[in-house]
Amino acid sequence: MADPTIAGGRAWTFDAPVIACGFDRTGIGAFACGDGTLRFFVDEQEPASISLHAGAILALAVHPGGGFLTGGDDGRLVHTIPGGESRILFEQKGKWIESLAVSDATGLVAFTLGKEAVVLDASQVVGRFTHPSTATGVAFDPKGRRIAVSHYNGASLWWTKSSTQTPTVLNWKGSHLGITWSPDGKFLVTTMQESALHGWRIEDAADMRMTGYPSKVKSMAWEHRGKVLMTAGAPQVIGWPFTGRNGPMGREPLEVGPEGEAIIQVVATHPEFDLVAAGTADGRVWMQWIGEEEAGTVARDLPAISCMAFAPDGSSLAVGTEQGFAAVLDAA
């Protein structure tokens, strides 16, 4: 296999798989790895490594109050300020923390823990919500007052600040694996075990089936206006329009990017522009302006792409791979 090639930027090879990557508000980037370390990079420096978890890190999010949150297969949720301290916010041995969500509106943090979803504020647990099967994904509504949790046969909606309540349950048969709330608050979309997405219009629980993928969809991202949901799982990025009352119902999705063979594993959307980045199973990263013909390959011959994230100012794109190769690529 050819050596990894990147068009511009910096690259490193870590000795562990990269599971997730992201940037905090100040533009400090981080890679979360399968050996429990978080590796930071600032400007031209070599990444600093800090060991946070006993096993693998399974989830990474930007903390609303600054720094990063990580969840691991050691049952810990850790808050880390780059260059500062790291603090265990929650710990339950024997459980995995595989999914994290944060709300900038309320500063709340939510994560999944077995069949539960747990909500924390700055100092303590404010809610624990139990489901009939494993909670696989969690998302906040735009106001940060509700969470939606995906599980077998649908999703459950909970008010974060109410201790006794019956959840609103949205039913759809099958195993739902991840969840996102539309930025306008009107729709919920889950990824499924089958090669499909499922959506609900929240006001009346109307179902939306989004099918036709050749492979499981493992990544979704809203374009910067919050009106199109960009998704992986096909050789091109599939973008579902969520404008109007009916969202994508009865409409054709956008197909963005070159027609290749390799399945897209990860998608990322630019914070300011109509720009989509895609990372494929065969180690290629390309970016394309929505509506234009030509995609620009920014990296190729990498191991399978496992994660991507744009910097908050859109100047760079962090890319992680299953084999430890990681890069921060020049973007836009």
């Binding site: 562990a16 798989p17 399968g34 693998a56 297969d73 995995w96 494993t134 696989t136 075990q193």
Partner: peptide, 13 residues
């Protein structure tokens, strides 16, 4: 559960 756990184990170094 098995799909999830096997996937998680493969993320370890």
């Amino acid at each position: 559960d098995l799909i999830r756990i096997l996937g998680g184990l493969m993320k370890r170094k």
